[in-house]
């Protein structure tokens, strides 16, 4: 393409084709490791390169990353186990989402993956009972703030975040995969009806619903930070389970647009095997790709203007505009009223 290869692009190339790892010099490796850490992909990269010849310095870092990922996996699985234990009385399976779901189901997408909070999906009708059972088992609200609470309950797709008082782990209880205020409204009933039980009171979304959730998460949740990682989830899911019936299912959830873009980007960046209609990037896709590959070898995002635009956008997509203004207004007033509060 006639321009310098960014460190992010090098990371993506290595994830795509680990066989070329030996060709990299140490200083390029340093950049790749830094970017991989910033994108939360070092554990994934370490798994992709497991068993391949790399120099001792690099191998030490990759060994550390694999060891760390296995601790992350252990912690995530235990948290899921405790959530299922606490919610056993509800009579519905706890549907795991994102990273915890991948490791619980033993999927390739979970190998080496970083996992932060535990995200679960429950039918909306059981939320009050779930809240009570979780409180009984030691979960507490992270922010005991009436407005934030109301905001979450009225407008968001999840309970206010919880934290376990002994284990210090965050739990997000969702009743659907996008805020009810977002324009696409996924069919939560279908998500739950088609979930796949794992045993132990746990379940995961169906393969296509996991893909759709990952795509929705990539564009609708947050400011595209961590985009390369979220896109890798999509790539690994497609490689492992294909994409049969994905487009129809995405249309049912009103997320055809997000899924199409995610598949096009996944193919463009990671060479994911996809149908021909997903093999060409549109002009806006290219902006997304540019944003995802923006980090330099020091781990810094390189296009601050693009990034700001994306921040505003990510807020817009979650909430219709008048609601967004109302939210910012109340936040702003709160900020003014209590300047000293941390």
């Amino acid at each position: 393409m006639g321009r310098a290869v960014t460190a992010s692009a090098r990371l993506v190339a290595m994830l795509r084709d680990p066989g070329n790892a030996h060709a990299l010099g140490l200083s390029e490796w340093m950049d790749v490791v830094t970017v991989a850490r910033a994108e939360l992909l070092l554990g994934t990269l370490a798994h992709r390169l497991d068993g391949l010849a790399v120099t001792a310095e690099v191998r030490a870092v990759l060994d550390d990353a694999r060891a760390e990922a296995s601790e992350v996996r252990r912690t995530a699985l235990w948290e899921a186990n405790r959530v299922a234990h606490a919610l056993a009385g509800l009579g519905v399976p706890v549907i795991l989402l994102k990273g915890t779901a991948f490791v619980a189901a033993g999927l390739a997408a979970g190998q080496g993956r970083s996992i932060g909070d535990c995200d679960i999906l429950l039918p909306k009708a059981v939320l009050p009972a779930a809240e009570a059972a979780l409180a009984e088992a030691g979960w507490e609200w992270v922010k005991p703030d009436a407005y934030d609470d109301l905001y979450y309950r009225r407008w968001m797709h999840e309970l206010p975040p919880l934290i376990h008082r002994d284990r210090d782990r965050m739990l997000d209880v969702h009743h659907t995969i996008l805020p009810p205020t977002a324009r696409p409204t996924p069919d939560a009933t279908a998500l739950i009806a088609d979930a796949v039980p794992l045993g132990g009171g746990l379940a995961i979304l169906s393969h296509n619903d996991m893909l759709i959730h990952a795509a929705a998460h990539l564009f609708a949740d947050g400011d595209l930070s961590g985009g390369l990682r979220n896109l890798w989830d999509i790539h690994a899911l497609v490689v492992e389970g294909g994409a049969d019936g994905l487009a129809q299912r995405a249309a049912q959830h009103g997320l055809g647009f997000a899924v199409d873009r995610a598949m096009r980007l996944s193919h463009a960046l990671y060479a994911t095997p996809v149908a021909p209609r997903w093999q060409r990037l549109t002009i806006p896709d290219r902006i997304f790709r540019r944003r995802m590959l923006a980090r330099d070898g020091w781990g810094r995002g390189r296009h601050p203007l693009t990034r700001l635009a994306f921040y505003v956008r990510s807020h817009l997509i979650r909430m219709p505009l008048p609601l967004l203004l109302r939210h910012l207004w109340i936040k702003w007033r709160k900020g003014r009223a209590a300047p000293a509060s941390g």
């Binding site: 140490l26 200083s27 340093m30 120099t55 030490a60 020091w298 810094r300």
Partner: peptide
């Protein structure tokens, strides 16, 4: 060294 385990900015 030619390789750094950690980067500080």
């Amino acid at each position: 060294p030619d390789f750094a385990d950690y980067t500080v900015r």
